[in-house]
Simulated assay, not measured.
Amino acid sequence: MKKFRAALVIAALVIGGSTAHAVQPDEIMADPVKESRARDLSRELRCMVCQNQSIDDSDAPLAKDLRVLVRERIGAGDSDSQVINFLVARYGEFVLLKPRFELHTLLLWLLPPLLLGGGVLALWLNSRRKTRVAVGDTDSLMQLSPEEQARVERLIDEQPSPREPA
């Protein structure tokens, strides 16, 4: 058990400790406050090549160009929202890893909770139906129609009795 715990701790350290950033030393700004802003913005922007990585984590040449562009805009005095708006105007909403909550992204934001709610509702209705059948009148479920009763009697009559030889 101790070996398992040690392996688990080592795996957690390796996975958690390896936050690789693709920012090159020549991209880093001299002002640590501006560099921190640039890094925060870079984590919110999608690499257009990798598509599920931020530009902060991507090694793609386009991601590097975007990181440099972000730093240039910050160096020019743009606010964070101005930098984001500039990039959205240039590349579209897809450049944002977390899209804005607007009318044209409403379905994107509301579909997951609606699907989850629909699934919960379906499970609740299904369990309620099963409970109603289990608690309800079971005698009506056990009764046969006249046609079914006649067929059962015919099948019983056709069967040889256990005392008769086959």
Rank of each mutant, 00 (worst) to 15 (best):
E44Q: 15
E44H: 14
E44K: 15
L45I: 15
R46N: 10
R46S: 01
R46K: 13
C47D: 08
V49Q: 00
V49R: 01
Q51F: 01
Q51K: 09
N52S: 13
S54C: 09
S54T: 02
S54E: 05
I55M: 10
I55D: 05
I55T: 09
D56M: 15
D56P: 10
D56R: 15
D57K: 15
D57I: 07
S58A: 12
S58I: 03
D59I: 01
D59N: 08
D59W: 07
A60Q: 06
A60K: 06
A60W: 04
A60G: 00
A60E: 01
P61N: 07
P61E: 01
P61T: 03
L62F: 06
L62R: 06
A63D: 02
K64Y: 07
D65G: 10
D65C: 08
D65N: 07
D65K: 15
D65T: 10
L66W: 06
L66T: 09
R67V: 14
R67N: 12
R67E: 10
R67T: 10
V68W: 13
V68E: 13
L69F: 12
L69A: 15
L69P: 06
V70R: 02
R71M: 03
R71K: 09
E72S: 05
E72G: 02
R73T: 01
R73F: 12
I74M: 02
I74V: 08
G75H: 02
G75Q: 04
G75W: 00
A76P: 00
A76K: 03
G77I: 02
D78S: 04
D78K: 07
D78P: 06
S79V: 12
D80A: 12
Q82S: 13
Q82G: 14
Q82F: 06
Q82E: 13
Q82L: 12
